[in-house]
Amino acid sequence: MTDKVKKAPAEMNDIPAIQTSNLTRLFGSLVAVDGINLEIKKGELYAFLGPNGAGKTTTISMLCCLLKPTSGTAAVMGYDINREPYKIKQIIGVSPQETTLSEHLNSMENLALVGHLHSIDSEKIRNWSKLMLETMGLTDRAKDQVRKLSGGMKRRLSIAMALIHNPQIIFLDEPTLGLDPQARRAVWDYIARLKGNKTILLTTHYMEEADYLADRIGIIDEGRIAALGTSSELKTDIIEKHTMVVYAWNLTQKVIMELRNRYEEVEISNGTMTISDKKLDFKDIINRLHTAGTVVRSAHIKEPTLEDVFLKITGKELRV
């Protein structure tokens, strides 16, 4: 008898929470998403990092069953996005890139609407809404129609609406866009607490956000995943060169020439010398400077950032 109970495909065996195979979407002749293959584990927080127009939102829209893929497919908790969209819609929570709320409803009512549409009972909705509003710092504005809230407050409510029904899979498209540092911190902390329990796919333009939150980061550019890994994997794998920054007085032409002979790049500006190469010998450099009579004020090895990784891969600066 027991095997007649139909379980969600994902519970039956350990398949990924989100899996895409050659997921592709065209708008006319523009290839917005170009054969993406993703595999996101249950409980993982996966961040998409990519420049404007890279295809992040388009990918999320396909996974939420709002857009049809042109070719390829995807499964969310084992449910196919083309065949079982309503199964998927029951288990996902979405915070879209644009803040969209029902403007003449208050915060409580907006949250309740999403809750009810997911068939959560009113008692639970009330309790969860209170908690959610508290987390988002909106408790004292809970009864105001949301059109009267500030942009950042709306944004916080918009995130809360993605979470109110306690979904298994959460899509957050640039969740902290437009939030002040304090609110951003609060949202990060909340998301960090969800880690492990929920599968989260997040897009962001903030390096710190991806760095702080993500288990894995996918750098997406022109509809393709250009690099994938943990933050430190990306930094060490992609940025092969190390950089040393030295503040010094009395830099002589001779010692500069000497360093240029040994290391690939040596640049000077305003008494700051940056040296980069695949291999840097910190001690050797200091010794050479010392011998040449240079006074070293400070010297350190610069850690590569995601920004560097991003720049290296996409050739584009992130906005911010």
């Binding site: 069953c65 709002l66 819609k89 996902i92 644009e98 969209t100 029902s102 549409l117």
Partner: peptide, 13 residues
Amino acid sequence: SRFLYRMLTTPAK
């Protein structure tokens, strides 16, 4: 306002 598209990510038919 794209609010409809947000509602469309819920199981409403």
